[in-house]
Structures are given as C-alpha cells and as structure tokens.
Design a protein around this nucleic acid. Sequence first.
DNA 1: CAGATGACTTAACTGAGGTTAATCCAAACT
DNA 2: AGTTTGGATTAACCTCAGTTAAGTCATCTG
Lengths: 222, 222
Amino acid sequence: MRTPSVEDYIKSIYKAHAERGNVATHELADRLDVSAPAVSKMMRRLSELRLITHTPYQGVKLTRAGEKLALEIIRHHRLIELYLVQAMGYSWDAVHEEAERLEHHISEEFEERMDVLLGHPTACPHGDPIPTRAGTIARTSNRSLARQRTRERLIVRRVSDEDSKLLRHLESLGVTPGAAIEFVSQEPFEGPLVLQVGNTRVRLTPQAAKEVFVDAVDDDDG
Amino acid sequence: MRTPSVEDYIKSIYKAHAERGNVATHELADRLDVSAPAVSKMMRRLSELRLITHTPYQGVKLTRAGEKLALEIIRHHRLIELYLVQAMGYSWDAVHEEAERLEHHISEEFEERMDVLLGHPTACPHGDPIPTRAGTIARTSNRSLARQRTRERLIVRRVSDEDSKLLRHLESLGVTPGAAIEFVSQEPFEGPLVLQVGNTRVRLTPQAAKEVFVDAVDDDDG
DNA sequence: CAGATGACTTAACTGAGGTTAATCCAAACT
DNA sequence: AGTTTGGATTAACCTCAGTTAAGTCATCTG
C-alpha cells in the first residue's frame, strides 16, 4: 500500500473527477497509459485499501482518505515544481516530468522545508493551487480560454503543465499565470484566437487556448 | 533493468568490495536486509545485465559497467546529502535516509544543477568523496581511528553516515571531517579512546571510533 | 423489446522482487 | 581421503503491476 503506482491511480482519479465528474475505467486507462484490465484490477485493490468506493460497471469515487492522499501527492508535485523553478533555476516547462517522479519519494521533512524556503506558496509555476497539508485546496478557474466568444479583459489563472512545447510557446507570448490579457476575437472557421497581451497582439490556436484557464478581470483583481 | 532494487544491489556490491575485498552472498543479504536466496537470484539478473561477473559458490565482481552504475548512484547520494545540508538546512545526521530514496529518482539535470549550485563539490557532509560524472572517484582514508594505538596527531577524513545518533554524538565532540585531533591514549580493557580536539579532551568508545577514518597529519595538510 | 455494441471485468499469463524449505557444494577436520 | 558443516543455490510459492484474450453487463438502437 502507498506505492508510486497506487499514488498515481489516486491522483488520476482525483483529477479526472475534478475535470469530468464521473470517472470511467477507460478514462483512467488513457490517463495512466495502461490497459483497462489493469485499471479494473487496481480498482479492487484501492477499494480494499478504502481509498475509493467502486461499484462495478458504474464508476469510482474517492473516499475522504483517498482525497487526502491525492491532495498530498498533488501538494508534493506542485511544491517540487515551484522549488525547482525558484531555488534550482529550472525553466517552467521542464519541471513537470521531474516532479512526477519525485512526488512519490520525498519525506515530510523535505516537503516542509520546501514550503518554508518558498515562503508558504499558494500556487505552482503553472498557476495551480497548492493543497494545504491539512488536505484542503483553493478553488481555481475552470474557464478555458478556448470557450471565450466575446471581447473581454481576462486574467490568466493557470495553464496545463504537461506539454513543455506548449509551455515554451505560451511563455514567449506572455500568456502566463497572472497575466492580464484581452480576448479580442477568434478568426473564422475555428481559427486562432486574437489576444491583446500588454502592447502586443498575439494569436493562439484553439488547441493551445484549451489549456489556458482564465477569470474575468473584475472578479477579484484589476 | 535499472530499477531501484538493481541499483541498491550494485551499490552494496561496490561498497562491500571496497571494504572487505571479496563479496559473499550473505554479506549482501546482511547489507540489504534480504534473504540469501533473494541475493542469489538477483546475482543471476545482474549477470545477465552484464553488471557483474558471478561464479557460483565463489563470489561476485562488478564489471566496468557495474562500477560506473555504482559510482553514478553514489554520486547522486553524496550530492543529495550535501545539497540537503547546504541548500535546505538539513542537519548532517538526517540526510542519509532522504538521499537513500532520492538517489534513484533524480534526473541528469537535477544532478547537474546540484553540482553547479554547490560549486562542483568533492565530498559529502560526512567526508566521503563524490565520484565524478565520468565514473572516477578519489581515494580516501581507510584507516579507522579504532585501530590507532600510539599517540599521534590526525586529521578526521570521513565518518560513516548511516547512524544518525552516532553522527549527532560525533558532532557534539567536534569529531567531524576536516577536524585536526590528537589520539592520546586508550583506556585499559578496550576502554574509550582519549582524544584531544581543539582545547578539550574527549573520550570516544571503540564502537564509535570504528566508524571514524583518519589520516596522519603530515600526509597532505597540517 | 430483442439484439448489437462497446465498456467493464475476469481469466490466464509474465516478470520483478521477495519469502521459506530443501538441496548442493566446497572447504575444513579428523 | 571421507565426512561434516555452513554458506550458496534451487525449488516452490507469494504479491504487485502489468499484459492479451475471453466473457459479461448495460445501454442504445432498430
């Protein structure tokens, strides 16, 4: 129990639930890049470990213990990402992979020291909130820039951290967490989005925009 | 291949060879806290991986590939130990355990960044030399303080890193790598060693002294 | 409402890494 | 040199995490 594999499954269930609601077997198989039978079998193990409730042929849901485990691993992941950028000079597109391994192997002390050295940060370099040690997490934007239709001033909240090419691209455009941008228009036939970023006008494909999450500018900040 | 387990076996073979010469099955079983059959079986795997040469009922020896792997893992371990102390504020008695896990999971980039941030260090906090990336390692003292019989001025070179209680004790006595000490005498009936450390006279049990390695003062430095 | 379809699960197998029990070998000692 | 003996190996088995192939369930459709 509490092997890297178990932790990966639990994390994937948490994320799938947050993004899509109900969690199907093939959804996890896709995310974890394993076969569906591997998922089925692991669901039984996780049930026995009381980390999930699983009704066969229906779906799967984390117990509170499972959710806490997921949040602990996610906390590790995001603290590590930020630490690598802030303390070790990594670029933000290179940290995900490293964090993906290390998150399973650091001690409580390591986690605590990173947290202190970073000044109890609340978000990772990609804008995702860092769960607390107690197992809570701040709500964050789930509003994808790709769904924007009307001209509006927006704040970039977070971007998906998994594709480093995309991250390098977004950085070069200035589309990074915290940035104030304006959605101007979308070119016809599912063409690129036209954005105002600072003084420059940039274009972003819908595929890229899907991975960028925003809030309206008048929500919290100006 | 190149699982944490494989790396641990290779590292243990390297260390056992350095300390004792020939490497027997039960020696590895003791070090790794597994059964002798587990060792026997792993020896076959490591042979197939061309990391060792194994003549059944005789012993085991690392190939050059095995030695390079061992040195890479040891390099990871010692860089991590030093990084934890220097950059993260760990105490020297707490780093071994953490390094023991992380050594298997860091990337080349992580290794390289630690190395640069630490200024290409040559020794870990316990005085053990850090292998180079090319797979070479500096010779170090193998002269245990426990074997000292005559009054002599000595330099502490390194101390075993595995027992954190011992490390805290040695630190409190000032018996740390680089320290100049003088062996004064040993009390009768395998009693404690009497040492002069700076201005104070301290006593150290033979069990503890066994884990401290020294050089004569006139060897390299004064 | 029966049947086709596709997702989910079960079955049988693989490989890594471990266990204990049984066997084997080599070195040491009469 | 034969026998003892203890360390090393093999055998049989376990768990974890994966695979492919086969079977099952729920739902969507004609």
